[in-house]
Amino acid sequence: MPIIAFPSAGNDENAVLDLRFGRAKNFVLYNENTKTFSVVENTQNMQANQGAGIQSAQNILDNNASVLISGNCGPKAFRVLNAAQVQIFFAEAKPIIELLQDYQQGLLKKAESANTEGHWV
């Protein structure tokens, strides 16, 4: 059963999705086995002014998430997540708990490719 990751500025399921995947402060994680939420910081390498999306993608993988629900995903992050077979779903800035329900009901759109070019996402 997968772990689902939500980029967010908040710490729990009531927080709203942060649309900037690369610069999100935290990832709220939902474990479908234990049905519990947890939060991890989206630590970034501050020396690098590029590649925030790659680092975020790496953080997703390091936390064993296999689903990402995100407002955006740039081409570099997409390449990492796709190679690691993480499924990406696009969503709007809604509370995470609502997005989880949307996901479970199959309402979210699966990303087939990156949807942004900018290097900040």
Binding site: N45, Q47, A48, Q50, G51, A52, I54, Q55, A57, Q58, L61, K76, R79, V80, L81, A83, A84, Q85
Partner: peptide, 24 residues
């Protein structure tokens, strides 16, 4: 290698192994 890169040019993509982002 991924940890040693200061420029986010490498990523470890699970079974797919290490990815190199030449442009970074």
């Amino acid at each position: 290698c991924v940890k040693s890169c200061q420029f986010n040019a490498l990523a470890m993509a699970g079974k797919a192994g290490v990815l190199v982002f030449n442009e970074l």
